[in-house]
Design a protein around this nucleic acid. Structure first.
Lengths: 107, 107
DNA sequence: TGCATGTTTCGCTAAATAGCGAAACGTAGT
DNA sequence: ACTACGTTTCGCTATTTAGCGAAACATGCA
């Protein structure tokens, strides 16, 4: 029942979830398409337990969603804007420009 | 000289900077236009020193930029995509949809 | 120069986070 | 039911972060 009571809080959760290199790496991996935890472990270069915790943080923030498939758990992005925003951030040359050509149109 | 060596790291810094309710509130305030620290103190509802620290974090991450004007320091957003992304996050109803109507066109 | 005001840095404490390894849990197959 | 494998939870320690108040620093004006 914390729908608009914490709009900022919720948004902050998303940012906080993305504010970690390991999690960001995983998210970037997911931009490419859905992956099982094993793939994400490889992408993050960390232990299983650590990755699992990171994933639960991303899940709680609503950035990713999981789906059991056979004996694996498949993750995918739940927040497509993230890929776009990420693409923006990874083009530092676009930062200073006061246009958002990277994230959509200028309007 | 850490241009692409830490593309992810840098992006994570941005997210980390935004991953705090107080800082997010300030950033939202800045979406409205440039502000002096005093305005941001009011927006955050925190002490001056705390806000100053938050601002230096946002500045270091490249989210905002500052400019001395008279005896005040004026802040403004340096990353316009942020406003757009924020708008996306604050419309939870748009999350699950696999379109990014919120953050730009679909392409 | 010296005062008043706006802003940042410093020192501190409580709380949150990242990472690991071991153990627990769940599902597929025998 | 048992085994094997994929995934998550638990217990732990080191590091980081949030917040504050006091002090330092900078600027405009007299």
């Amino acid at each position: 029942m914390r729908s608009q009571r914490t709009a900022i809080q919720d948004a902050a959760e998303v940012f906080k979830a993305l504010g970690n290199p390991a999690r960001l790496r995983m998210v970037r991996e997911l931009s490419d398409g859905e992956k099982c935890v094993c793939d994400l472990v490889a992408a993050a270069g960390l232990g299983w337990s650590t990755v699992s915790r990171h994933l639960s943080i991303l899940r709680a923030a609503g950035v990713v969603m999981d789906e059991k498939r056979g004996k694996q758990v498949i993750y995918q992005l739940a927040l497509p804007c993230v890929s776009r925003f990420l693409a923006c951030l990874e083009n530092p040359s676009l930062y200073p420009a006061m246009h958002s050509a990277c994230c959509g149109e200028d309007g």
